[in-house]
Design a binder for these strands. Structure first.
Lengths: 158, 158
DNA sequence: AGGCAAAAGATACAATATATCATTCACAGA
DNA sequence: TCTGTGAATGATATATTGTATCTTTTGCCT
């Protein structure tokens, strides 16, 4: 890797390492392109769209990266649990704990666009149970809450 | 209908009537165009995209209806609780009981695309509570579950 | 009828997502 | 080393979803 971008925190590096390990354990290849996209995704302050990432990576590598390549890689990331799609934002976030399987609850701020997340297995379990009770199987819950985050709500009085 | 209390289930004409009443009570105009779109939406077997509805209504009226008009009307429907957006399908469904405020749980079948829904105030309340605990306000929960519906799972043995 | 505001039409365009085929690359086996 | 194979990526086109802006029409009120 030996990256020249020194403003990366150690936390970021170790996340990439953990991601790589989990990824390879899942039988996938950790290629330079995938590493670039993972870095772009984990460096983003907000959920990033595939097009955002395509642009970021295009700049950082100097080579044009097309959206469809990004989509392909994001799909692999999502199925390997390295990233997650935020449905109500049409965007993606890294999974900071690629080793744990959780149904995340995402909290999406309407005004700043940032996303927080909560892992509450009891809550997501209740959602799963409700879906099963309705005859659904092979469940993939999407639990998100739009609203105003604490920071944005302060100055906002709305 | 046996259910004289709780959630009145409206169908066909009476649903449109109930919707119109609720809509006008909210201070909105029930125009012919809006009635057309509501009819198209409530006649759809699956969640309908704005473009689906535009095409349906274009055919049923003989006049070309542009997507942006449909979007505008859907937005009004959603804010008046006559319809809901299914985030993970980029589509809309009618609200069968426009008089009650609920955080619906949508169940979206991967293979047939149909959507079921569950109202579980305790469940959605728990989601709201978790978001509030994280400092969020002005909440609009999105609780959806992708999976296989009972019908599709049968022939599928996946 | 006349005037106003809401609604709808027309058009253009931006953003998101997928489909298809070609090219590159790593690697196994002759 | 050569080559066949499959995975990954590139290139390109196109489909789908969503907004912005301006004009025209419609419904409502006096």
């Amino acid at each position: 890797m030996a990256t020249a971008h020194d403003h990366k925190l150690h936390k970021g590096e170790s996340l990439a390492d953990a991601a790589q390990r989990a990824f390879e354990r899942a039988g996938e290849q950790w290629t330079p392109m995938r590493a670039e996209i993972f870095a772009a995704l984990s460096g983003a302050a907000k959920p990033a769209s595939a097009y955002d990432l395509a642009e970021t990576v295009s700049r950082s590598t100097g080579r044009r990266v097309a959206a469809n390549s990004v989509y392909r890689i994001l799909d692999v990331f999502v199925s390997a649990n390295l990233a997650r799609r935020v449905e109500s934002a049409n965007a993606y976030v890294v999974n900071a704990h690629p080793d744990c399987e959780h149904d995340c609850v995402f909290l999406i701020c309407d005004s700043c666009g940032k996303v927080g997340h909560v892992d509450d297995d009891q809550l997501s379990g209740a959602v799963r149970k409700a879906a099963e009770k309705a005859g659904f199987s092979n469940l993939r819950p999407v639990i998100e809450v739009k609203g105003s985050c604490a920071d944005c709500a302060e100055g906002d009085a709305a």
